[in-house]
Amino acid sequence: MFDTMGASASADDINAMEIHHWYTKFMKECPSGQLCLHEFKHVLGLQGLTQDANKYVEQVFHTFDMNKDGFIDFLEFIAAINLVIRGKIDQKLKWYFKLYDADGNGTIDKKELLSIFMAIQAINGNQSMTPEEFTNMVFQKIDVNNDGELTLEEFINGVESDASLLELISKSFDLSNVLKVIQSGRRHSI
């Protein structure tokens, strides 16, 4: 019994059966083993999006494309799924930060956060606050030196120390509903 408990406590990664399931699904959708941006949108049923929503989907794609070759291969795909489903909060926050930091300069400014939140609203429907309110609230709470930019450290420390902000960010950027679409094999149009 002790062994089982120990195993489940440390089994942070997706198990072999789940990997097999995802691999079958991935190869069915993407026989080449290389998912390009167009296929990524197709798999998730994300065609005909607004410009903002489209930009967000592209940003998600590029964040998952870790070796920056313009494709998501199965290893990158499984790493992304593992992060979304099982990732610890600081791993997820690092990923969110990378997603927001559209120009890759190591900081997030209000414009970057605003454009990502607008895109997410376009995909997920109405949120409880406008993108402007959300952006101002985030900066007001966690931009400690008031320079209008958030470093990775400011972002992680700020979000982790504010339970309501953490919940809001986790809910807004939750990709597990996207994964359910892939898993079930249903394609939906937005």
Score class of each variant (00 low, 15 high):
E149F: 12
H20Q: 14
I19Y: 05
K111P: 00
F139G: 07
D109M: 06
L99F: 09
S172R: 11
I142Q: 10
F97N: 02
G33E: 02
H38G: 06
N126R: 12
I72H: 03
K25Y: 03
D13L: 10
K88I: 04
A11D: 12
F77K: 02
I156M: 14
M129G: 00
L93E: 02
V144P: 00
V60D: 00
S161W: 05
N177K: 15
K98P: 00
N145T: 09
K141F: 06
N145C: 09
Y56E: 02
I72C: 05
R186H: 14
T107S: 12
H42N: 11
V181Y: 01
I78P: 01
V181Q: 03
G185T: 07
T4K: 13
D65E: 04
V57F: 01
N145V: 06
I156L: 14
N145I: 07
I123N: 01
F2I: 15
H20K: 15
D143K: 07
G106V: 06
L44C: 01
K94I: 12
D73V: 04
Q51P: 11
E112K: 05
D109A: 06
T107K: 12
A119L: 02
A7E: 11
V138S: 07
L83Q: 05
F40T: 01
E58Q: 15
S172W: 03
W95Y: 10
I190Y: 13
G104R: 11
S164Y: 13
M17V: 08
I89P: 11
F134W: 10
Y56D: 01
S10W: 05
Y100R: 04
L165D: 08
E153W: 04
I19P: 00
I156Y: 09
M17E: 14
A119S: 15
I72K: 05
I108P: 00
F74A: 06
L49Q: 05
C36T: 10
G33P: 01
M17W: 04
E149N: 13
A9I: 13
D147S: 10
G148D: 04
F74L: 06
H20T: 09
Y23D: 05
N67E: 06
C30L: 03
A163G: 10
M137D: 15
D90F: 09
